[in-house]
């Protein structure tokens, strides 16, 4: 064995070839099957896609680095299920490009945050967390209420997401900017279009409490309110018990 190595270490090409071969095996065996084994991701026929406003909100969540302190992955442990709700299923993040499972909980898990608090609570909390949770360590995101939301390129965002596998229709892509406006402005014609294209379960509300203009706050709150609500799969009684 060491005799063979004596030869390999005299050849640069030999070393390169062996390093690439030896290092590739682990990934090929662990990752490739995840794309082909059907049981990896559960079936969820009721799975919804994110609306354009929720996509924009998700991008703000990424932009501000929320994932650095909040996970979106409830583990199959009893205390987590009792604290946060049913453990997370793979299908629930199957439209998340990329996933935001996170690796650290400086703040609590957010996988089932949707509709747990009111829009007003979220707006106040994001504006200054210590107004509602005095001990909080979270930064105050005051600029979210100041900055108008960019919507003109949302159609491109939806097409890019479609290119990586999210089933958006042509109609949804074409109306992306209008739908973002409509979702935060109930009782307008644009709002009816959102319900029509994304289903009646979609939250259509003035998320930041102001109807005149769309802000980053509207988008982020819309996203936070849909977390865990894209499908009911995790609430079905046929899931195995947590450990």
């Amino acid at each position: 064995m060491f005799g063979l190595h004596y030869k390999i270490e005299r050849s640069a090409i030999g070393l390169v070839t062996f390093i690439v071969l030896v290092a590739s095996i682990g990934g090929l065996i662990e990752i490739a099957p995840l794309f082909t084994i059907d049981e990896t991701v559960e079936q969820a026929p009721d799975m919804r896609v994110y609306t354009p406003l929720e996509v924009a909100g998700r991008n703000i969540y990424i932009r501000e680095g929320c994932y650095a302190c909040h996970s979106q992955m409830i583990r199959t442990l009893r205390d987590e299920v009792e604290r946060y709700g049913p453990y997370s299923l793979a299908v629930e993040s199957s439209y998340d490009h990329p996933q935001l499972w996170g690796s650290k909980r400086t703040g609590p898990d957010l996988a089932r945050l949707g509709n747990k608090y009111s829009d007003a609570w979220h707006t106040v909390h994001l504006f200054n967390p210590r107004d509602v949770v005095p001990e909080s360590k979270m930064p105050a995101y005051r600029w979210l209420l100041r900055d108008p939301l960019r919507t003109d390129d949302l159609g491109n965002h939806l097409s890019a997401l479609r290119a990586v596998g999210v089933p958006y229709t042509d109609e949804q892509v074409a109306n992306a900017a209008l739908d973002a406006y409509g979702q935060a402005n109930p009782e307008t014609a644009a709002a009816d279009g959102v319900a029509e294209r994304y289903g009646s379960a979609t939250n259509i509300r003035m998320f930041d409490g102001v109807s005149t203009r769309l802000t980053d706050m509207d988008a982020l709150v819309a996203y936070l309110q849909v977390l865990g609500n894209l499908t009911d799969a995790a609430h079905q009684p046929n899931q195995p018990e947590a450990e």
């Binding site: 995840l34 299908v91 993040s93 199957s94 998340d96 490009h97 996933q99 990586v164």
Partner: peptide, 12 residues
């Protein structure tokens, strides 16, 4: 940009 992978495959 949007990652080519999503969910569990992306996490892995």
């Amino acid at each position: 940009s949007y990652s080519l992978f999503s969910g569990v495959q992306d996490a892995m």
